[in-house]
Design a protein around this nucleic acid. Structure first.
Length: 471
RNA sequence: GGCGGCGUACCCAAGUGGUUAAGGGAGAGGUCUGCAAAACCUCCAUGCGGCGGUUCGAAUCCGCCCGCCGCCUCCA
């Protein structure tokens, strides 16, 4: 089965055929850098990280561009409030973004362009639009004339009439049509500006993505992605600008991820229910967050759930413990050949519009199979299955560190939150094992309970007693 | 008002016309263990918001109703 993708443009699942065999060009709208990223951003980031990883897993040479929008009204307003330069504010949040991205374990994009580095390209595209009669200048502003593009509204499947009827559209006499949008904004005092044929000013919101995507990927390119909320107006406007400016089609497959909800509600500033990535990662493992996100299909809404994250945390430990057990028994061989049956199943599910919930079902079945073989000490059969499990979890970005190192790190960071040292735990385990040797079960169980009270769980195995932290 | 999505077991969540409705968690029983824990094994929805309809056959298609959510304004 070949890869199929639900294309927002058609609303249907379509076989994915890249423009150039073996290569995928993908652009994903990044963030406007004026504030901390929240878990809604995390979902979009993780969704496209998994898509990116999976495309590479399939062997595609995947060129992945994710931008920063670093000139915008919100940035200017926020910078003014803080009394600092917009550039400084943007840089601060670009730095913050990079920290979050690293914490989330995102694979690096091929290019990470900034809007302010592409002003020339934007001016050129706007000039082309004016020349072709798709845009008009009014007192230093330049607007896109939506009526000049019959296809306008196709992505979001609505017509200009539907958009205007009863919609909350601001009245602006300078616009020819209420839905016309700004390509270029005349500069005001105290704002960043660039010289242009229409005077000093700055770009409108959508033009930067039209320019940066095609600058690095050509036009048309294969995949354009982003959050569901960008379908209209952002992506609709990008299409209008790019197709009218060049006369060529823009992006071929449109992918949009669903929202993160908080208490059944969309997370938004106005509701005041924002949860930053940082806050969440202070309490939950990034891999657990990733796993949790993947348990719901990327197009569906997902509820932020403490219970769900805690459960995911447990599952991540299970995954790494099994991988670690296997390494101890048969050694590491992450590049070894994988058992083909389960891998085919996994690919079949992922090929079906990146159906991660089903792909995870395969992962869990393999996890059980590997544990069974481990229990039986069946080393010969183990190798292929273990390699397969490893390959699947790596393709999803769930396994990014050697298992033992991950578990060690997890213990260390968890321990930092308890008033207990590793030595102390070892000492108590020693004490308990001494009691066990003389069959003083009361004393042994007492020590175990005391540790459990502190959040340390003991496990007696044939090769001694190990411990782990409760979630 | 216009456009779109969702409602599946105690919880999360796939499945969108056809043998037994994935998977995870919880729960029950079992193997192992001094007892636990972990791991493994077994069980756990004749039913998929409700009511009609189409069909040999529907969670899956159609209609109506109920409930929830998103977009139409900055938003991942």
């Amino acid at each position: 089965m070949a890869l199929c993708i639900t294309n927002t443009m058609s609303g249907k699942k379509e076989p994915f055929v890249p423009l150039t065999p073996g290569t995928v060009n993908m652009y994903v709208c990044g963030v406007t850098v004026y504030d901390q990223c929240h878990i809604g951003h995390a979902r979009a980031l993780l969704t496209f990280d998994v898509i990116h990883r999976y495309l590479r897993f399939l062997g595609f040479d995947c060129r992945f561009v994710r931008n920063f929008t670093d000139v915008d009204d919100k940035i200017i307003n926020r910078a003014n409030e803080e009394g600092i330069a917009p550039e400084a504010l943007a840089q601060r949040y670009i730095n913050e973004f990079h920290r979050d991205a690293a914490a989330l374990g995102l694979a690096e994009p091929t290019v990470e362009p900034r809007a302010t580095e592409h002003i020339d390209g934007m001016i050129a595209l706007i000039a082309a639009l004016v020349e072709r009669g798709h845009a008009y200048a009014v007192a230093g502003d330049v607007y896109f004339a939506v009526e000049s593009f019959p296809e306008y509204g196709r992505l979001s499947s609505r017509s200009l009439d539907e958009m205007t009827a009863g919609a909350r559209v601001e009245v602006d006499d300078r616009k020819r049509h209420p839905m016309d949008f700004a390509l270029w904004k005349a500069g005001r005092e105290g704002e960043p500006f660039w010289d242009s044929p229409w005077g000093r000013g700055r770009p409108g919101w959508h033009i930067e993505c039209s320019v940066m995507s095609t600058r690095y990927l050509g036009q048309p390119f294969d995949i354009h992605g982003g959050g569901q909320d960008l379908v209209f107006p952002h992506h609709e406007n990008e299409i209008a600008q790019s197709e009218c400016g060049t006369g060529k089609p823009f992006a071929r497959y449109w992918i949009h991820n669903g929202f993160v909800q908080l208490a059944k509600e969309k997370m938004s500033k106005s509701v005041g229910n924002i949860l930053s990535i940082k806050e969440v990662l202070e309490r939950f493992d990034p891999v657990a967050l990733r796993l949790y996100m993947l348990t719901t299909h990327y197009r569906n809404p997902i509820e932020f759930s403490e219970e769900g994250l805690t459960e995911a945390q447990r599952t991540v430990a299970r995954l790494y413990e099994t991988a670690s057990r296997a390494e101890r028994l048969i050694g590491p061989s992450p590049d070894g050949a994988a058992e083909s049956g389960p891998m085919d199943d996994f690919r079949g599910e992922m090929d079906d519009d990146f159906n991660t919930p089903r792909a995870l079902a395969v992962v869990f079945e393999e996890l059980r199979a590997v544990n069974r073989l481990l229990d039986e000490g069946h080393t010969r059969a183990l190798d292929g299955r273990r390699n397969g499990l490893r390959a699947m979890t790596e393709a999803l970005g769930l396994m990014q560190a050697p298992p033992e190192r991950f578990l060690e790190e997890r213990r260390r960071s968890g321990l930092a939150r308890l008033d207990l040292s590793e030595d102390e735990i070892r000492r108590m385990i020693e004490e308990r094992n001494a009691a066990r040797r003389v069959k003083d079960w009361g004393q042994a169980d007492g020590i175990r309970d005391a540790l459990k009270e502190k959040g340390v769980l003991l496990r007696d195995g044939p090769s001694g007693t190990t411990w782990e932290l409760a979630e």
